[in-house]
């Protein structure tokens, strides 16, 4: 049986990627963030998935505003790293898993999720930074195949937090029903609190973030009941991205333990965090 071996919630700030790409991870500014990642990285390096399902949003690099899907899935077996305007990040392109993505697509549609199918997709920092958080030095090739799932967080009306949690639950069922015995990791990316524009630019709300970090494990239903307006008011217009963590949480399920957590302010304009969950193995 295919199993989900861990779930990672992580910010996907571009400057985290840039810091790694430019070997600044040991700089005074960045060291505390990367030191915070270290225990999770060690644990993940010992628990390597065959496939990573990465829930993220595109930032005007693959999708234009003429057509915005609420939820989309990339079904190709290859995804190029997007050129975000400065040339692509110097990381390997991404290998997909066409069979598993088709399986997930069909199961999700059968479960009443109205997925958009992306047969061609360039993946931006929203996906590649979390991959680098997992695996800072991939060499020639990322250590796992990847299935991208995209969420509209940029344009109102975004999906509700409740809908994201429900999608995650269906995603978990879909992954576990894939024939074979693959090991899968699920990434929920984005956040924490931040706002890039407007008079509240620079907003960071540590209290909200810490409660979110607690409840993403203990009480996801509380987080799912928050409205889009709640997220925007408390966590900033871009902090709303955190709804994507609920998809990961829905997929991995309730019977989990927290392997590691770290919180850091700021990663450029953003509160950055990481939380790593693993299923509690029956004893």
């Amino acid at each position: 049986m295919t199993e989900i071996i861990w779930g990672l919630g992580t910010s996907h700030v571009p400057s985290i990627g840039a810091a790694m790409d430019n070997e600044k991870a040991q700089d005074e500014y960045w060291k505390p963030l990367f030191d915070g990642y270290a225990p999770a990285r060690e644990w993940m390096a010992e628990n390597t998935p065959d496939v990573a399902v990465i829930i993220y949003n595109d930032h005007a690099n693959a999708l234009g505003l003429e057509m915005i899907p609420t939820f989309a899935i990339g079904t190709d077996d290859h995804f190029n790293v997007a050129d975000e305007g400065y040339g692509p990040r110097k990381v390997p392109n991404v290998r997909g898993h066409a069979e598993m993505s088709e399986h997930i697509l069909v199961q999700l549609v059968n479960d009443g999720f109205d997925m958009t199918v992306c047969q061609e997709l360039d993946v931006d920092h929203g996906l590649t930074v979390p991959l680098s958080v997992y695996c800072p030095e991939p060499g020639e090739q990322w250590p796992c195949q990847v299935i991208p799932i995209l969420v509209n967080v940029l344009q109102y009306p975004q999906p509700t937090a409740q809908r994201c949690l429900a999608l995650g639950e269906a995603l978990g069922r879909a992954i576990r029903s894939f024939p074979g015995d693959l090991k899968v990791a699920v990434f929920g990316t984005g956040g924490m609190s931040h706002q890039l524009s407007g008079a509240r630019a620079g907003l960071i709300n540590e209290k909200f973030d810490r409660e979110f970090l607690r409840d993403i494990k203990e009480n996801p239903e509380r987080l799912a009941a928050l409205t889009r307006e709640d997220y925007i008011r408390e966590a900033g217009s871009e902090g709303l991205e955190m709804i994507m963590w609920l998809i990961m949480r829905g997929a991995i399920g309730d019977d989990i333990e927290r392997v590691h957590e770290t919180y850091h302010v700021p990663a450029s304009n953003t509160a950055a965090a990481l939380t790593l969950f693993a299923p509690v193995t029956a004893s």
């Binding site: 066409a98 069979e99 088709e102 399986h103 697509l105 047969q119 061609e120 024939p179």
Partner: peptide
């Protein structure tokens, strides 16, 4: 191959595998 695409004789049931082949 784990495709669940229905098989109907004499009929192309166009799916993402076909679609990728014919891009």
């Amino acid at each position: 191959m784990t495709s669940t695409t229905p098989i109907v004789e004499g009929t192309y049931v166009y799916d993402i595998v076909q679609s990728k082949r014919g891009r």
